[in-house]
C-alpha cells in the first residue's frame, strides 16, 4: 500500500506492506537511522519521535496509521544551518549521553516535555522521561541537560 507523510518538513511517499512499522519506514525506506530500536516490548523509548506534535514510540505504530501525518525525528531538530536545538546543546553541555543509543529518544521526549511544561522541576523531568531507558548515564546528567535547555528560553 502507498503511505505518504511529511517527515522533517519533506513530503515522502512509499509503497510498503501494511505491517511496516513507522520506525522501519523511517530507517529502511527513508534511510533516517537516527531513530533507534532498543527493544521488542514497547518499553525503552529509543524510537521516540514527534508525530503531529506528540511524542510517540515509532516501534509501536504502523506506518499506515501515520498517513498524512507530520513527523519530526532527531534529524529534523537542528536548524538548517546546523545550529543545534537547545536540548541537543544541553545534552552536549551537560554530558547527558555516554554511548548515545538512548539519546535521540530522550531528546524527542524532552522536546514534548518542554512544550507542555517549559519550566519543569527535577521530579517532573524524571516523570516525563519514564518511557525512556538509559543503560549508561544513571539519568542525572540527562536531567541536568533538560534543565539547561529549559534555562535557555
Amino acid at each position: 500500500m502507498k503511505v505518504s507523510m511529511t517527515v522533517n518538513g519533506v513530503a515522502v511517499s512509499h509503497d510498503v506492506e501494511p505491517r511496516t512499522l513507522l520506525v522501519q519506514f523511517l530507517r529502511e525506506n527513508l534511510g533516517l537511522t537516527g531513530t533507534h530500536v532498543g527493544c521488542d516490548t514497547s518499553s525503552c523509548g529509543a524510537c521516540t519521535l514527534i508525530l503531529n506534535g506528540e511524542a510517540v514510540k515509532s516501534c509501536s505504530l504502523l506506518a499506515a496509521q501515520c498517513e498524512g501525518a507530520e513527523v519530526t525525528t532527531i534529524e529534523g531538530l537542528a536548524a538548517s544551518d546546523g545550529t543545534l536545538h537547545p536540548i541537543q546543546e544541553g545534552f552536549r553541555e551537560k554530558h547527558g549521553l555516554q554511548c548515545g543509543y538512548c539519546t535521540p529518544g530522550m531528546i524527542m521526549s524532552s522536546v514534548q516535555l518542554l512544550q507542555r511544561n517549559p519550566n519543569p522541576s527535577d521530579q517532573e523531568i524524571r516523570h516525563a522521561l519514564e518511557g525512556n531507558f538509559c543503560r549508561c548515564t544513571g539519568y542525572d546528567n540527562i536531567v541536568k541537560a533538560v534543565q539547561w535547555a529549559a534555562s535557555q528560553s
Binding site: 505491517r19 516490548t41 514497547s42 516501534c59 509501536s60 505504530l61 504502523l62 496509521q65
Partner: peptide, 26 residues
C-alpha cells in the same frame, strides 16, 4: 479493530495476535 494500537501492535509484533485484517479507527 485498531485504535491507538498500544496493546495490539506490541502483541502483533510478538505474534501473540495475528489478525488477517486490521480495521483502523484512527
Amino acid at each position: 479493530i485498531l485504535a491507538g494500537g498500544h496493546s495490539m501492535v506490541p502483541a502483533m509484533k510478538l505474534r501473540l495476535s495475528t489478525p488477517t485484517t486490521v480495521i483502523d479507527l484512527g
